[in-house]
Design a protein around this nucleic acid. Structure first.
Lengths: 206, 206
DNA sequence: AACACTGTCTACCATCTGGTAGAGAGACCT
DNA sequence: AGGTCTCTCTACCAGATGGTAGACAGTGTT
């Protein structure tokens, strides 16, 4: 099909990347095809050549987000420690860097709520198995007493909300006086880990 | 000035309300003045009569959000128990209902990150004192050993992110199979409270 | 009766939006 | 050389957007 000729940073891919960043950081409706094209250094009609419509472009972007999210999280989940708290910690560490570096990514996930259901479903369906696996795992560990007893489904949602919120809501961090320096980043990550660990740990440790 | 003649739901106020809901739920850029006007049952030019421009309307909306947020949170903070965990619990309970009932409210706060700084500042400046007071309070309680020792500023940010995220990210809740029924709501609220309590409680209780 | 003020409206306008039609340049194939 | 295919472009277009100008009706005020 559209197998690349030489460079892998094909026009198509560059459009996808630019669209992800713009959609995620400023909102889908607020970003015009002209703007995406300008960002890539190309005309709007070139964008429409690769993606028949804005809708189709958005679908492709969501597909990419799903793929990246799945890769990052799945890898972290698999290669982690046996202790659930450490395993969760590994996921947070793995997610944190890309999330803060590229807030558009999670920003786009957040954007889902504002999108027509058809689009939202496209991403949700892909991520769903991952969520279900997480829930199942948490339930097992709760049963074993390794995690605080709670509704595993909602705990997944709550933990996700915490991570996403802190990674995307820059204004909130500004309001509490946080600075986006390197050490600030590390500090934030560590506090986030401690926060989640405390929220998930069983009430009476060992 | 624009003191209402008879009904308090003046055109101006109805425009503000509609704008808040639309801006907050769908994004500022994605909502047109025509749409707001249609929602109110009036022509676009009437909107522009009350607010000279979309920017000015947005400013007024942000001002209203700030006022409401401050009232709700401040009241909960003041009228609460002496124990910090119970006090936090009271705040969560107080914020939760309006937040879930009118997600546009917190949605608009989230929207700040996407807005020009001038607008973001307008709200942040108003909420800042409240944040500072919260931080100070948490620090005191941490010193007394009533709360888990942590960076109080970031803890405020994290707790806020959790509440806002769970209240506004409907898609996430759908993904974990949550249903917006009455009992579902209560259940969600209780899990949220337990989650935050665990995240903030000191490691060795009593 | 004349006037001014208030609030809503109709009539426009320049600009931007997503999208169509099709030209043109280069690469590849025969 | 001729033809086809791939990719990017210019030229448009219909509709929406934020905003201006000003008409018009109702309500006091004098």
């Amino acid at each position: 099909m559209s197998s690349p000729t030489v460079r892998e940073t094909s026009t198509r891919q560059r459009i996808l990347d630019a669209a992800l960043d713009l959609f995620g950081s400023r909102g889908v409706d607020a970003v015009s095809l002209d703007e995406i094209a300008r960002e890539v250094g190309v005309r709007k009609q070139t964008v429409l050549y690769w993606f028949a419509s804005k809708d189709e472009l958005l679908d492709a972007v969501l597909e990419e987000v799903a793929a990246e999210l799945i890769v990052v999280i799945d890898a972290a989940v698999r290669s982690a420690e046996p202790d659930p708290l450490q395993r969760i910690d590994a996921v947070v560490r793995a997610v944190f860097r890309p999330a803060v570096r590229r807030p558009a990514m999670l920003g786009l996930v957040r954007e889902l709520t504002r999108l027509p259901e058809a689009h939202a479903d496209r991403l949700r369906v892909r991520v769903q198995p991952l969520v279900d696996r997480c829930v199942e795992y948490l339930e097992q560990e709760m049963d074993k007493g390794h995690l605080r007893r709670a509704d595993a489904r909602l705990v997944v949602g709550l933990a996700y909300a915490t991570v996403t919120g802190i990674a995307t809501d820059r204004e909130v961090l500004r309001a509490v006086g946080w600075q986006p320096t390197t050490s600030g980043l590390r500090h934030l990550r560590d506090e986030l880990r401690a926060f989640l660990r405390a929220a998930l740990a069983p009430p009476a440790p060992i």
